[in-house]
């Protein structure tokens, strides 16, 4: 048995659920967590996209109310709204999903999670696979693989 811990983007969780359901994986635990990776929680203006709302943009550019605002992704490198300008958020909200699977299911699940979550941008998340020594279904007391099915 293996314990699979996956840290995912918040908006990919629904897709992931669907994929796992089609695979017949029923038992999953979902958690709200915050986290960051090697980028230390930096996000580019391009990745922020719509969530970088009008008020924030006005502050960044220093525009007065009513003035025309440049779009995200416009401007020269280094200007506040250039697509590569990074914003430091520290710990970003993420979802963690935890499941226990028998050895032969692991590759299938990992592949399914990868397919549902790859956007190619930093922050897609991680999957960790740890050994799990035992599992017991509390209702019946069944042990090991029987407790999973």
């Amino acid at each position: 048995m293996k314990l699979i811990i996956a840290i995912l983007r918040e908006d990919r969780v629904e897709d992931t659920k669907e994929v796992l359901e089609t695979l017949g994986i029923k038992g999953v635990t979902f958690l709200y967590v915050t986290g960051r990776g090697q980028q230390k929680g930096r996000v580019t203006a391009w990745e922020l996209g719509e969530s970088l709302n009008r008020n924030m943009r006005m502050q960044l550019v220093g525009a007065r109310p009513g003035e025309e605002l440049p779009n995200v992704g416009s401007g020269v490198a280094g200007s506040p709204l250039h697509r590569d300008t990074e914003f430091a958020f520290g710990f970003l909200p993420k979802r963690m999903i935890i499941m226990v699977a028998s050895d032969k299911e692991v590759n299938l699940i990992v592949q399914a999670i990868l397919n549902a979550n790859q956007t190619g941008q930093h922050g897609d998340g991680r999957i960790f696979i740890c050994p799990m020594i035992g599992a017991i279904r509390i209702r019946t007391g069944e042990q090991a693989d029987k407790a999973l099915s």
Binding site: K2, A6, L8, V110, I113, L114, N117, Q118, T119, G120, Q121, H122, G123, D124, G125, R126, I127, F128, I129, C130, P131
Partner: peptide, 13 residues
């Protein structure tokens, strides 16, 4: 501290 056998980066797989 527990063991981790594998780690996958989702972005690159």
């Amino acid at each position: 501290v527990t063991d981790v056998e594998e780690s996958h980066t989702i972005r690159t797989g």
